[in-house]
Amino acid sequence: MRHIPVEPPAFFHRGPSPFARLAFFGLLSIVLLFADTRYRYLESVRQAVAIVLYPLQRAVQMPGEALSYVATYFSSQRTLAEDNAALKRQLVAEASAVQGYPLLQQENARLAGLLDLRSRYGAAATAVEVLYTSRDPFAQKVFVDKGTDTGILPGQAVIDADGVVGQVTRVYPMMAEVTLLTDKDHAVPVRVLRSGVRSVLFGSGAGRLPELRFTAPNADIEIGDVLVTSGIDGTYPPGLAVAKVETLERDTGQVFARIAARPIAGADRSRHLLVLAQAVSLPPQPDEPAGIDAVKRGKGKSRRGG
């Protein structure tokens, strides 16, 4: 009688079944998802992998950069002349405002000195270039070509020539991730330039305009109003243009008005951006008197936005 082996020959060994593998790696993924979103344990791993990926990302950029370089090189004399003329006209148009500026600045410095205010900004800024936009359709993020090597820190404001673009949210050694105004998790404290009404502009995700939430229906806001940063969060310096009110619905049945505003900066178009160093130092929060402390313990402590 021939002996029949109990074990199948080694040829058929393929390790655990695909389902067992899926269960193992699926669980591992879910653990990772929790560890990353809840506790941010894995930032150093991400940084390390990002360093390895960086040369690849730059390499992939190159053909496009070369193309645009060639296109610029061959842009006709006429376009350049037209651009030059337009820029000169713009320069003259803005000359009066610019000439008045040093005087105003001087006056402002004197007044501020009188009032003993700390100087608000005028701090260093870093010019950066957009490398690429995130492929993630759920978030509105771009990556720029400078990171910790030039002293960029998370939380710094990012602007372009027209206004606020967003905020640095994650910094890699040679790259930084900028969350745009339109991202769903992004909020900017703003002020209506015309009337001074304060509010907060919340992003609503791709393809939707950011909204001014929690604004009373009778607030003094009109279509076309320009929103500028109010500076009360300590992140954005005050007075930067943010958005223009585009739609406005006042429904007396609702507690708040529905206001949508279109970002003024080309949040998803501009290539060259400026990262502003944080120079706004808010005074430390005053200590609450000891007696009130016990009463207020149940309520939220911090009232500062940001």
Partner: peptide
Amino acid sequence: VGDATQFGQHALAYAVLAF
């Protein structure tokens, strides 16, 4: 990492795809 999404998101999706 390349997409700056949460760790494990594409990993889980690709694992299910492979399965």
